[in-house]
Design a protein around this nucleic acid. Structure first.
Length: 1046
RNA sequence: GGGCGAUUAGCUCAGUUGGCUAGAGCGCCACGUUUACACCGUGGAUGUCACAGGUUCGAGUCCUGUAUCGCCCACCA
């Protein structure tokens, strides 16, 4: 600050835009975010949940990162060596899909036109651009990440960790190859994950087919009937199933339905009754036939799959529900998830009939080359022609579609790599069960344990190009000698490698994968080789020997699972890893507890033999005004930058922290802001999807995030914001102005220690409150109670610091004797308040801190000290127990109440604030002694002059009264009194008091209460009743008086 | 279908181990530019604590059930 600085020149509103930029740059320039090793300080570390590089951050990220920054900043001030590890996630499918879509839209090309290498190059370019944007957003929010350590889940450091981990698991035999149904998008020619699939009801049919029984015995049916919504899949059928005990199944179902009926509400009864009817109908009409089929199945009978003319077995499996369809079900293991399970159980062949482009392959015989839709029509026609088509019902079908291409999903059987989960999952479960990892709020531990408890193997293959390519090379051997040959060569290769043999019998396509091979001569072997590191030379040799590298990449979560240690340089041992692992806490949202949190614990334990973090805090979700989750696709998302532009980064942060309660999701109505007239327009389900919106008030149009056409894009863009941030913005401004006032009045500040006896009543009060608040805020933040901390600070700063302490200081600055101490205490108080607020609102507190340093560089009550240059490195306040004083706080509360009473009377009587009034207080002598010295404050804060304190003050003739505890405040209105207003008010009061009295009397006359409630509670009730009665007496007295004067 | 959570003022939310005469902000009403702040100040009005039972001397708080909403997981031949 230059010497010409004057606090009077400071603007009335905090210029957050300028301050944010300047202050953040100064933090970075001083390297204040850097985590150091070897400092001997206790470490505190957090790894960021890496945002997807795909897109911009939304409000959910803003919340997530605000909370992390709040903790990191507090811990840093508390003297911990803090590390906040930043980075982004390569987000396989989402990122590749975005780039592919642009390729399609802008160049009309598919990824196959570019090829793997070129596509990956494009994605890298995209990634660089978007990573910058994300990091810039985080910086604008004020996040104090150690940017020099920024990682990316696909960078070389992380890649090394991935390969090392995969190799380790492979060698431990925890990786295996198996078949799995994937959601195949035949348009994009890619598998998509379950969450990229949406379901839609479409008009469809339920076709019944007859499959002839091979060589029926006399009395046996000559055909069985099955039903399906996807006729073409019958080409891949490998069995027809019937329930092993249809009678028992029906009985069980009936019992269950009857139980449900007994408990069911009226409107559900009908459906259940119908189901019951269905059961008994089936029992009489179908049961014998089903039992006969069951017996035939047990005899090993077969049916002839029409069109393919392939004999397939009749089998028994519980999957065939006797109450559904025809009671028999066709089994197509390669194209249906449930059938796949049946196929596994029953060791059925699995016939894939689909090519990746959605056309039928050679296994479909004459139908080869048709699309699934064409095949469907054809199959139905052909069966009809052969007289094998039965009933065709119309039916609504819940059909899975690809979210990206909107085409129907084809379930397709594919080779996939899996991670065996049994042991790993158990490790991760134990860590939570024995509290090495603690989850807050606790209830989320249940979901974590339940999910891991299933111990389902983790399919890690993804049919994508963007990601960590699975480090496996495979080679098939035609016969035993080739295999032996290969094994000898592999044994001679130097270095660390691991391989697995996968043995399959001859007809690969038709036979299940098996580890047990009875006849070795019929086997052909595949050798899977896993490399722990990139090894170009060896890879070259492998290719020459006929090895092929796995095309698929790993699930993104595989690399994310390593995040807490991979970012610290694992597998290389180094100081950062030693210092900051395990990390202290993880802050994330509940939807990735299983996908991410569980897997980090598991991988951390596997790789590091220690948990990745000691605590996990699950924060709420941000919902829109309709209670729906915010998402880009719904158009109800909010860009944190819009909020920052309008309200400031501090307001964004404070607003979010203020809303972060333990149980409630955050519902946040959203508005569009008209760029022409700044009018807010509520976002509705209708307008949130429009590319342009017309302003309600100025009638001009503006564009939204959906604008695509040139004319829409040419319009100014309307920001999406929420009024919820106004509270926080106003709070920051309040703090700014209070600070401005303090700074203005610090002119002439002289640092000096302040002895206890120099402290004024209000100083003691404020210091006492500050000690309490400091403790509360620290505890709240350490317990992840962000809303509580924010609310405590909000109330303290606004209602106590500003509305009382600063107001009272005004009077003291007029008094040359009192002013120096007032300045010292005020400088100290502001200093402490800024510190407490800094983690939540870092910019404004730093801004004021700098100004305070100019006005009062040395400050503090005991011994004024030069304070640190940045508030970031200032010490976190510790509650000063010596200042805590319950009596002072009580006395001060009395003062506040008397002041309130005077103000209330003034307002009630409609007196202008200019109009000075006189008041007297009837009270005990001690109280008079206490409050009389406060006379000046009544003048400045309520425009009221006291004319008497004590037990014997004269009651003015015409007065308005308010009673506070055991004292009475009279305002002499000298004939100006609005008698009606007083009577009305007193009568209202009388009613309320009488009600309370009768309530309490009733309670106290209840012998049960008096006997059983704790004595202390009863006593409290008695006292309270006594007080109310006294109060009522006074009200009645006042009413009588008023009646007289009327 | 399974699990979890929510339901408190017009709106968004607090409300510790049951002791409540239920709070805050916004909005609303009245007054007000008093030298930090109108993004402000002072005062005021506003509630069948979703519903129904139960436990208890006492229930917004604990238990059971119902309704509505939301989230996660599974399933949907």
């Amino acid at each position: 600050m230059t010497s010409s600085f004057s606090a009077n020149d400071l603007p009335k509103r905090f210029d957050f835009t300028g301050a944010q930029k300047r202050i953040y740059a100064s933090w970075e320039a001083r390297n204040l975010f850097a985590a150091r090793t070897g400092t001997g300080r206790e470490p505190f570390s957090i790894v960021i949940p890496p945002p997807n590089v795909t897109g911009a951050l939304h409000l959910g990220h803003a919340l997530n990162n605000t909370l992390q920054d709040v903790l990191i900043r507090m811990k840093r001030m508390q003297g911990f060596e803090t590390l906040w590890m930043p980075g982004t996630d390569h987000a396989g499918i989402a990122t590749q899909a975005v780039v592919e879509r642009r390729l399609r839209e802008e160049e009309q090309k598919t990824r196959h036109d570019l090829g793997r290498e070129k596509l990956v190059e494009r994605i890298w370019a995209w990634k660089d651009q978007y990573e910058q944007r994300i990091i810039s957003q985080l910086k604008q929010m004020g996040c104090s990440c150690d940017w020099q350590r920024t990682r990316f889940t696909l960078d070389e450091t992380c890649a090394r960790a991935v390969r090392t981990t995969f190799f380790d698991l492979f060698r431990k035999q925890l990786i295996y190859r198996g078949k799995r149904l994937v959601n195949w998008d035949s348009f994009l020619q890619t598998a998509v994950s379950d969450d990229e699939v949406f379901h839609e009801m479409v008009e469809g049919h339920f076709w019944h087919f007859h499959y002839p029984v091979i060589d029926p015995l006399p009395g046996e049916p000559d055909r069985v009937t099955v039903a399906t919504t996807r006729p073409e899949t019958m080409l891949g059928d490998t069995a027809v199933a019937v329930h092993p005990d249809p009678a028992a199944a029906l009985d069980r179902l009936e019992t269950e339905l009857q139980q449900r009926l007994a408990a069911a509400p009226e409107r559900e009864r009908e459906t259940i009754e119908q189901q019951l009817e269905n059961v008994s109908e089936r029992r009489s009409s179908m049961l014998p036939a089903l039992e006969q089929l069951r017996d035939m199945a047990n005899d090993g009978r077969q049916v002839l799959l029409p069109l393919m003319e392939r004999p397939i077995p009749l089998i028994t499996d519980e999957w065939a529900k006797p109450d559904l369809g025809t009671g028999c079900v066709k089994i197509t293991p390669a194209h249906d998830a449930n059938d796949y399970d049946v196929g596994q159980r029953q060791q059925l062949p699995m016939i894939n009939i689909l090519k990746k482009d959605g056309q039928l392959n050679a296994n479909a015989g004459v139908y080869q080359g048709l699309s699934t839709t064409e095949a469907r029509t054809q199959v139905v026609a052909d069966l009809d022609q052969q007289g094998l088509l039965g009933e065709v019902e119309d039916r609504e079908i819940d059909l899975a579609h690809s979210d990206r291409s909107k085409t129907p999903i084809e379930p397709l059987l594919a080779d996939q790599w899996f991670v065996k989960m049994d042991k790993l999952a158990q490790l991760a479960m134990d860590a939570v069960t024995d509290s090495r990892v603690q989850i807050f709020p606790e209830r989320y531990a249940k979901g974590y344990l339940d999910w891991l408890g299933e111990k389902r193997d983790w399919p890690v293959s993804r049919q994508l190009w963007w990601g960590h390519r699975i480090p496996i090379w495979s080679c098939s051997c035609a016969d035993g000698s080739e295999l032996e040959d290969l094994q000898q060569w592999l044994a001679s290769v130097p270095g660390d490698l691991s391989f697995q043999l996968e043995l399959t019998s001859e007809q690969n396509e038709l036979t299940r994968v098996s580890e047990l091979v009875e006849d070795a001569s019929k086997v052909h072997a595949t050798v899977h080789l896993c490399l722990p590191e990139e090894h170009p030379e060896l890879q070259h040799q492998l290719v020459e020997r006929g090895f092929v590298q796995e095309e698929d990449v790993l699930d993104t979560w595989f690399s994310s699972a390593l995040w807490p240690h991979s970012t610290l340089g694992w597998p290389e041992s180094n100081e950062a890893l030693d210092t900051f692992y395990p990390t202290s806490t993880l802050i994330t949202s509940r939807d990735i507890i299983t996908l991410w949190v569980a897997r980090m614990v598991l991988m951390g334990l596997n790789n590091m033999e220690d948990v990745p973090f000691r605590e996990v805090f699950i924060h709420p979700k941000i919902l829109d005004g309709y209670g729906e989750t915010m998402s880009k696709s719904k158009g109800n998302g909010v860009d944190p930058l819009d909020v920052i532009d309008k309200f400031g980064a501090d307001a964004l942060r404070f607003g979010l922290a203020y809303l972060t309660t333990e149980t409630q999701d955050v519902r946040m109505p959203v508005q569009l802001e008209c760029p022409h007239c700044q009018q807010s327009i509520d976002q509705t389900r209708e307008n949130r999807e429009l590319p342009r919106v017309e302003c309600d008030s100025c009638k001009q149009a503006f564009s939204t995030q959906w604008a695509r056409s040139e004319e829409d894009l040419a319009l100014p863009r309307g920001a999406v914001v929420s009024e919820r941030f106004e509270i926080a913005r106003n709070f920051c401004n309040k703090l700014w102005n209070a600070s401005r006032f303090v700074l203005i009045n610090l002119e002439g500040y002289q640092p000096a220690a302040v002895a206890d006896e120099e402290l004024a009543f209000e100083d003691r009060w404020l210091l006492s409150r500050m000690a309490t608040v400091t403790g509360q805020v620290t505890e709240a933040l350490e317990g992840y109670r962000f809303a509580e901390a924010s609310r405590t600070l909000y109330d303290f700063a606004w209602d106590e610091f500003c509305s009382f302490y600063v107001e009272m200081a005004k009077a003291r600055f007029q008094d040359d004797k009192a002013a120096p101490v007032a300045r010292r205490v005020l400088a100290h108080a502001l200093d402490q308040l800024l510190r407490l607020l800094h983690p939540v609102i870092p910019f404004i507190t730093e801004g004021v801190w700098e100004l305070l340093a100019a006005a009062a560089p040395r400050r503090g009550l005991d011994e004024p000290l030069q304070q640190s240059e940045s508030i970031m490195t200032a010490d976190w306040p510790v509650p000063d127990a010596s200042h805590r004083d319950v009596v002072i706080e009580e006395q001060f509360a009395l003062f506040q109440q008397v002041l309130g009473a005077v103000r209330e009377i003034r307002s009630r009587q409609g007196l202008s604030p200019r109009e000075s009034i006189e008041f007297s207080v009837r009270c005990r002598d001690e109280v008079a002694d206490l409050l009389k010295p406060m006379d000046g404050f009544f003048v400045t804060m309520a425009g009221a002059t006291s004319v008497g304190w004590g037990p014997d003050v004269a009651v003015p003739e015409n007065n308005a009264t308010v009673r506070v505890q055991d004292l009475e405040v009279f305002v002499d209105l000298m004939g100006l009194i609005d008698v009606e207003a007083e009577i009305e008010r007193n009568q209202k009061l009388k009613e309320r008091l009488s009600g309370q009295i009768s309530g309490k009397e009733k309670k106290l006359s209840n012998q049960q209460f008096v006997d059983r409630a704790p004595a202390e509670v009863v006593e409290r009730e008695r006292e309270s009743l006594g007080k109310i009665k006294q109060e009522l007496a006074l009200v009645e007295e006042a009413l009588a008086r008023l009646g007289k004067s009327k």
